[in-house]
């Protein structure tokens, strides 16, 4: 992947800077006001240096001290904004009300109370092939690195939670079969559908809520202190996957997309029915038993997963309705 196109003054400076050899001092300070898409893309680029990097960027930039303060600043803004929204949400009130309640029960309540619109339901009922392809291009920003942000949490938890987390990660990475790696199943589906399967290919068209979903995942994964949020997010993601995946597989077949693409979602119906139970009961409940102070962060992470998906769905449905 090459560096994406800039979306504003911040990413213009960042992209220009990263095309040169690493330097100890760079002038990246934001002086020209805030632009949400510019900020989100800048943070996405900074995070990507820790995944697979860019063909046109020196790998030594990854830990360049001159980039750390910008990353820190953008991450802190995103986290503070999400935490403020969470504290005003219904989910936060129900989480606090259930102070001593089993964290699995509170997570179930959060998930059941989620009333965000469903992209899968729309595509099954009224969607077009072009809308389905646009959704796949948007999803490709994460799905081609599916499970990678969660992998960063593994060294930060211990014992039963670590074993259960690895059980799921092992399945995500094909359970020893290179042709079953979930991110590659998605790539095969894209290629069969005539779309690009190249990692990061569609970032230039990634909509703001998609960039923020990706940034929140990377933020939670990269910071050890946010391991509770990372695993709460992970559990909510797995627990809201089986039924929509079944609907989406039907929708893709109805719209004439190739079986390889629908098969990616078939796989997630079955896999995530098990992952959901393990993530809730053996990862999150055990983590909170081991480290009770992380309970609120687990709920915050779960809320963030549900809320950011609801924003993505509303954004795309509004976009399609306006077209």
């Amino acid at each position: 992947m090459r560096l994406p196109r800039a979306r504003g003054p911040l990413t213009e400076r960042l992209v220009a800077c990263l095309q040169r050899p690493p330097r100890s001092h760079v002038a990246l300070a934001r002086t020209d006001g805030r632009d949400a898409a510019d900020d989100a893309l800048a943070l996405w680029i900074l995070h990507e240096l820790h995944y697979r990097g860019f063909e046109d960027v020196d790998d030594a930039w990854e830990w360049a001290p001159s980039l750390m303060s910008m990353r820190h600043h953008l991450e802190r803004e995103l986290e503070e904004r999400l935490r403020a929204e969470y504290s005003r949400s219904e989910g936060s009130r129900s989480g606090q009300a259930g102070g001593d309640e089993d964290v699995v029960a509170v997570l179930h309540q959060l998930i059941e109370a989620d009333d965000g619109p469903s992209l899968a339901d729309h595509l099954l009922r009224d969607g077009t092939t072009e809308q389905a392809c646009q959704l796949l291009r948007q999803r490709s920003v994460y799905h081609l690195k599916e499970a990678d942000p969660t992998a960063w949490v593994v060294p930060r938890v211990v014992g039963r939670a670590k074993a259960a987390l690895m059980e799921i990660q092992y399945d995500e990475y094909g359970a020893g079969h290179h042709d079953r790696v979930h991110q590659d199943l998605f790539a095969h589906g894209l290629a069969a559908a005539g779309l690009s399967a190249d990692y990061g290919h569609y970032v230039d068209e990634a909509r703001l809520p998609i960039l923020e979903q990706n940034n929140a995942l990377s933020l939670f994964g990269l910071q050890r202190r946010l391991r509770g949020a990372a695993l709460g997010h992970f559990a909510a993601f797995e627990a809201t996957s089986s039924l929509p995946s079944r609907t989406l597989a039907r929708a893709l077949r109805r719209l004439g997309l190739p079986d390889e693409m629908a098969a990616y979602y078939d796989e997630h119906v079955e896999a995530d029915a098990a992952h959901e139970q393990v993530a809730l009961r053996d990862v999150c409940a055990v983590l909170v038993a081991d480290e009770p102070h992380l309970r609120e962060d687990v709920l915050f992470g779960a809320w963030a997963c549900l809320e950011l998906e609801a924003r993505t769905a509303r954004d795309l449905l509004d976009h399609w309705a306006a077209a």
């Binding site: 089986s242 039924l243 079944r246 119906v269 079955e270 995530d272 029915a273 098990a274």
Partner: peptide, 11 residues
């Protein structure tokens, strides 16, 4: 719909 495997329908 995937018996014997679970597909989340119990929810």
């Amino acid at each position: 719909a995937l018996r014997p495997w679970c597909d989340g329908t119990h929810k």
